[in-house]
Simulated scan of single mutants.
Amino acid sequence: MARGIGVKRKLKAYVALTKPRIIELLLVTTAPTMFLAARGVPDLWLMFGVLVGGAVSAASANAFNCYFDRDIDRLMKRTEKRPLVTGEVSDREALVFAWLLGAASTVILWLVANPLTAGLSVGAILLYVVFYTLILKRRTEQNIIWGGIAGCMPVLIGWAGVTNSLSWEPLILFAVIFLWTPAHYWPLSVKYRDDYRAAGVPMLSVTEGETSVSLQTVLYAWATVVCSLLLVPVAPMGWLYTVVSVLAGGWFLWESHVLYHRTIKGENPKPMRVFHLSITYLTLLFLAVGIDPLLT
Rank of each mutant, 00 (worst) to 15 (best):
I145A: 04
F48T: 13
P32K: 15
P115C: 08
C152N: 14
Y14Q: 08
V112G: 07
F68N: 06
A98W: 06
N143P: 13
K12W: 05
A104D: 09
E210R: 02
T263K: 03
I23K: 05
G200K: 10
L166T: 02
V225W: 04
V289S: 03
P154E: 11
R78L: 05
A104S: 14
L215F: 13
Y128P: 01
D195K: 04
A150K: 05
I145V: 14
K137H: 03
F178L: 13
G249K: 06
S105K: 00
I144D: 02
S245Y: 02
P170D: 10
T30A: 11
F131D: 04
L285N: 15
L204D: 02
P83N: 10
D43E: 14
S105R: 00
L247D: 09
G161K: 07
G40A: 05
P182R: 03
F174R: 05
P154D: 15
L126A: 05
L282K: 10
V176C: 05
G102P: 07
V243M: 05
V155W: 01
T18Y: 09
T283K: 08
N62Q: 14
A124Y: 06
L179W: 15
S189V: 00
R74D: 06
L294G: 09
L166R: 05
R74Y: 06
E255I: 00
K81M: 13
I144K: 00
K81W: 12
V28Q: 02
A235M: 03
A104R: 07
K137C: 04
L231Y: 14
V213G: 06
L36N: 04
S228Y: 04
L11A: 15
P271T: 01
